[in-house]
Each structure stands twice: as structure tokens, then as C-alpha cells.
Nucleic acid binder design. Structure first.
Lengths: 241, 241
DNA sequence: GCCCAAATCTTTACGATGTAAAGATATCAT
DNA sequence: ATGATATCTTTACATCGTAAAGATTTGGGC
């Protein structure tokens, strides 16, 4: 295992100009896979998955601007062009990563479905889980709704995002005590879905963008985000006049 | 006026290597200011404003990824490093542009305040104006809430964004028949602000990201976005059970 | 076991970008 | 008028995405 440096040295023949720059010998093994003892089948074996893990790590550590093809390759310890072969281009990698995000999100929401007794409590539990996922994976959540960087035609992403939408629609239907067929919607149903989604997505985006800080700072000291979320969702909505 | 090419030729002395590339003579005057007859004080005179106009044009035409320092310089017909002097770096230009967006937005919202008779109608009118601004200036709206690309410490941006928030809080206060002092908020007040903002911001973001298309397509053919918005805001909110 | 085709990974190369630094030019206070 | 300053251009460099070609490993057919 790790016959890496050798094959490296061997392959370096031919045009040996421009060596003045003296590269740092290609810092290797910076982030070897956790299972470093698994006989490392070479060709790295599972680069596809390793690149996606590296990408998620980078996204959450350095933000969206730190998520570059070359940085991902560095983090995974491969050449800068390796990701291209697995994802085509940056949009491909980013879309695949967003699909993973939607699957994580769907799993979190499914787990939250055992969250309350009454319909209202269930809805609250789902909303809390929604915001909690975004707070735990802000980079991922931001990516999932940054359409200009995604290729929604990718099957993995398309399916995962659709599953998320179906989960939302189903939850709204359950709360309204009616099955929602996703083919056709009444205006009232559509309004209910749009309201729930807009509320929790808008809250989340404002929170992640730091825009809710202005509000939280003006509340009785130390008021939690969840408290504000609960109050937003439970307080009587329309004109108290 | 337009002594440009001359001074250009004069200045080109000294190191005349690398001429093999044969640049296209620096396509000038591609986008001369509308007031081309105003004696063109040269030094371009009002580059700061011209760059911002070029930036807005580029943003709405080519999207956020097309908004680069060099593209803005090209669009304004100046050298690629000219914007640096006026805005420091890309974040500076983008932040200044977002400030303009907030001012446009604030103006649109102020105009909408004469929109209805009852408090509910006024709220609806404001929400419609909110979404309408975002639809008319999707690039700008996206920029205004893309915090990772903004420098919120810039006074122009900070003030314009704060004014927008103050407008929102004031509108909520008016609707609740109470003055909201922006210093301290009760949980109920904060919840009301967060609810209104989250609803309309979330709706707008989902709309701009194309996520609402799935819903609109399943509604009776040709249902308008405004119809969905109105239904979302007016239909009784909590559990119809 | 061996050999060739395909898949995987690396090198090299190119254009575009952000940004810094230095040079050139216009404006302005004095 | 002149010198300081603001404005704009040139030049340079590191980084990025991506394409193309080379090198290496894998896997199937014999």
C-alpha cells in the first residue's frame, strides 16, 4: 500500500524544464481516508465518494467560495483534474453534493415525524427539525437552494429534491386531514404548502444570512432561535384588531 | 473630446515585446454613457456611477456569475483595473450595488404604502410590491440577500438595509396599531415581524429559485403568481380541523 | 499467466479572474 | 504655472475551470 511516491518518481521523465519553481513535492496524505488500512486498492478505489466527502468538509469549513474543484482534489489528495473525470465539471460535483444534502435533509425530516401528538405539535416538530438541519449544515442548505450553481436535470438531485417536496406536501396533507395527490392541487392546498414552505424556508434563509440577528438582539436577552420560531408559528396570525 | 486614441499611442513606448498577440486595439466606446454629448470631462468624469450602472446591467443580463470586475470594466469601456480604485475589490462593488438595490426596494415599498384601505389590504399591497420588485430585479434581490458576497460594514449598505428593516417593522407596527420602537421588542412583536418577513422573503426566494414552479404547474392552468401569493397570505392559517 | 481495451488518474496547457504595484495622465489647490 | 493628488492604464502573478494528452491500473478473453 501507498506505493504512491514511487510511481510518481518513475513517471517524471521527459521535459524537465521549468523546475525552477521547486514545487513542495505535492504534499500528499494530508487527509487520507479514515480507513487507511483497507489495503488502499489504489487508483484510490473510491475516489467518487471520497471527493464528495472532501467537498462537504470544505463547504462547511470554508464556505461556498472555498468549494473549488482544485481544493476538493487537494483535500482528497489527488491531482487537480481528477474530479473532472467523476463529475464532469464543478456544477456536476456541486449538484451531486446538493443531492446528498437533500437526502440528509429528508432523513432528518422523516425522523422528526415521530415528534408530537397533536397535528400542531407535529408541525412544530417538523419546523424545528427543518431549521435544525440548516443550522447544523449551513453550507449544505445554502447549496441546496442556490439554483444558479446546480444542474437540476441531474437525476440524483432531481429525485432527492422531489422527495423533499413530496415529504412537505404529505405533511401538509396529513395536517389538513386529506391526501394530497401531487398531480393537481387546489388553490387552498397550494396556498397551504406555499405558506408552510415559505415560512420555514424564509426563516431559515434569514437566519443563515444573519438577518434575524437584528431581531434576536432586541428580544429579552438570550432568547433562543427556537423560541422565536415557535412564537412565529403558533401566535395568532392575522390582525389582532 | 475623445482624444483617447492619441494619448494611447503616445504612451505606448518602451517595452514593446509580446506584440505577437495582436490585441483588438482595445475596443473602445462599446457602451458610452448616454449623455455622450456632455463634453465628456474625460477621466471619464463619473466612472463611479457608470461602473455601478454597468454592474446592474450585467447582473440582470448575465446573472451573478457574469458580474465580475473585469466584465464591469469592459462594459463601462475602461481598463480592467479601473474599478479597483473606486470600490477596493469585488466585494466592495457588489456591496455598493446591493445598497442601490435596497434603496430601489425601499422606494418601491414606500410607493406601495398608498395601496389599500383596510390594514389587511395595505399588507397585501405591500407583499405584492415586495414580490414585484424581486421579479423585476431578480439579480438585485438575489444579491441583497447573498451575505457571503457582501460587506455589511459598508455604511451605504448598512444604512439602506437597516432602512428596509425599519420600513418592515413600521408596517407591522401600523398593522398591529402600535408603535414599534426598534430598540426592544416583545416576543409577540418579534414573532409578527419574523412571520411577515419570512413569509414574503421565503416566497420570493422560492419563486426566484424556480421552486414554486412545481406548485404553480399543478394549479388550475394559468394561475398567476400573485393569485398564489394572495391565497397564501389571506387563507385562514391554522389547522382547519 | 498474458495481453489488450477500458477506466482511472496525472501532467501540461490555456484562457479568465481578482488583485497588487508601478507607470501615465488629468484635475485641482495654491 | 506648478506641484500634489486623484484617476486611469499596464504589467504581473497566483488561482481557478477545463480540455487534451500521457501514464497507470483494472478487468476480460484467451
Amino acid at each position: 500500500m501507498t506505493v504512491r511516491a514511487e510511481s510518481k518518481a518513475q513517471s517524471s521523465r521527459g521535459r524537465a524544464r521549468r523546475v525552477t519553481a521547486a514545487r513542495p513535492a505535492r504534499a500528499k496524505g494530508t487527509a487520507r481516508s479514515k480507513i487507511s488500512g483497507e489495503s488502499a486498492p489504489y487508483h484510490h478505489g473510491a475516489l467518487h465518494a471520497a471527493l464528495l466527502e472532501a467537498a462537504e468538509r470544505l463547504l462547511e469549513r470554508d464556505g461556498l467560495s472555498g468549494l473549488t474543484l482544485r481544493a476538493v482534489a487537494r483535500e482528497a489528495g489527488v491531482s487537480h483534474a481528477a474530479p473532472t473525470h467523476h463529475f464532469g465539471d464543478l456544477t456536476g460535483l456541486v449538484s451531486e453534493l446538493a443531492a446528498i444534502g437533500f437526502r440528509q435533509f429528508n432523513a432528518a425530516m422523516a425522523a422528526a415525524d415521530f415528534g408530537g401528538d397533536t397535528a400542531t405539535e407535529k408541525a412544530l416538530a417538523r419546523a424545528r427539525a427543518y431549521v435544525a438541519y440548516a443550522q447544523a449544515h449551513p453550507g449544505m442548505y445554502g447549496l441546496m437552494f442556490r439554483t444558479e450553481r446546480l444542474d437540476m436535470k441531474r437525476p440524483a438531485l432531481h429525485e432527492a429534491a422531489n422527495a423533499a417536496f413530496a415529504g412537505l406536501a404529505g405533511a401538509i396533507g396529513a395536517q389538513r386531514h386529506e391526501a394530497i395527490e401531487t398531480r393537481a392541487l387546489s388553490l387552498v392546498q397550494a396556498a397551504a404548502i406555499a405558506r408552510a414552505w415559505s415560512l420555514v424556508h424564509g426563516f431559515t434563509m434569514l437566519l443563515l444570512d444573519g438577518r434575524l440577528g437584528d431581531i434576536l438582539d432586541r428580544l429579552p436577552k438570550g432568547t433562543d432561535v427556537v423560541t422565536l420560531l415557535d412564537a412565529m408559528l403558533t401566535t395568532s396570525v392575522t390582525r389582532p384588531s
